[in-house]
Nucleic acid binder design. Structure first.
Lengths: 117, 117
DNA sequence: CGGCATCCTTGGAGATACTG
DNA sequence: CAGTATCTCCAAGGATGCCG
């Protein structure tokens, strides 16, 4: 009697349904960012506009990796890229509105880190 | 404008420089969880105690993966494991205080997902 | 039921070197 | 300075099978 029938049960949802309903967003969000580099780069961009090499230094990612991550983030609408072909070519990266909207997440993460890291 | 209205926190002088100082927490946190599975499992455990197969179903991870992820999370102090060797062996997983402290992060993530996913 | 052992595939990511 | 091109290596993770 210790265990309850778990398989042949479809209407198991009762008290946790509310959370279950919108928790999917988290999964979606995680799926979309997943990789640690994306998060690290996004976090670094919270300071505002940054150059490629600047990000390279602050994140510690290789040119190759950083390039692909930025490419990815741009394609997904998290960051914007503005290039200047003048002097010694410079390209600046900034957070889009979508990327900036992640700030609360980073803040929460940062907050957590202070207590548990 | 890259920053959002600060919380009820009192002195948040120049957030950018200030942020640069302790932003490491985010990196640390990301480094510690990194993998998407960890986040997904942790998120699923917000509902409370769950069994192995329950998590397997809800997360969609394979036994192998789930097992390793849970092992990892337990070793890092994010989850607790309570086993019952009675009839058909059952083991329950719950969030530790440390894991539960991540709720705000998931909430923020969830919040973000509603707007941008 | 809850796992661990194995095999095997994928891609994430470092190192290095080269271009515009 | 800002990438791109390779080559390579290793960990993540799916599939399957077995066991207490």
């Amino acid at each position: 009697m210790a265990t309850q029938p778990q398989s042949a049960d479809s209407d198991h949802e009762s008290d946790v349904e509310q959370r279950n309903a919108d928790v999917c967003n988290v999964v979606g969000a995680v799926e979309e960012m997943g990789a640690k580099w994306k998060l690290i780069v996004l976090n670094d961009l919270r300071d505002g506009e940054k150059r490629f090499n600047e990000l390279k230094r602050s994140t510690g990612a290789s040119s190759y990796t950083l390039s692909r991550v930025l490419d990815d983030l741009e394609a997904e609408g998290f960051v914007d890229n503005h290039k200047e072909f003048e002097s010694p070519v410079a390209s600046y990266y900034t957070l889009t509105e979508k990327g900036d909207a992640l700030c609360p997440v980073f803040d929460a993460l940062d907050d957590w880190g202070e207590d548990w890291l």
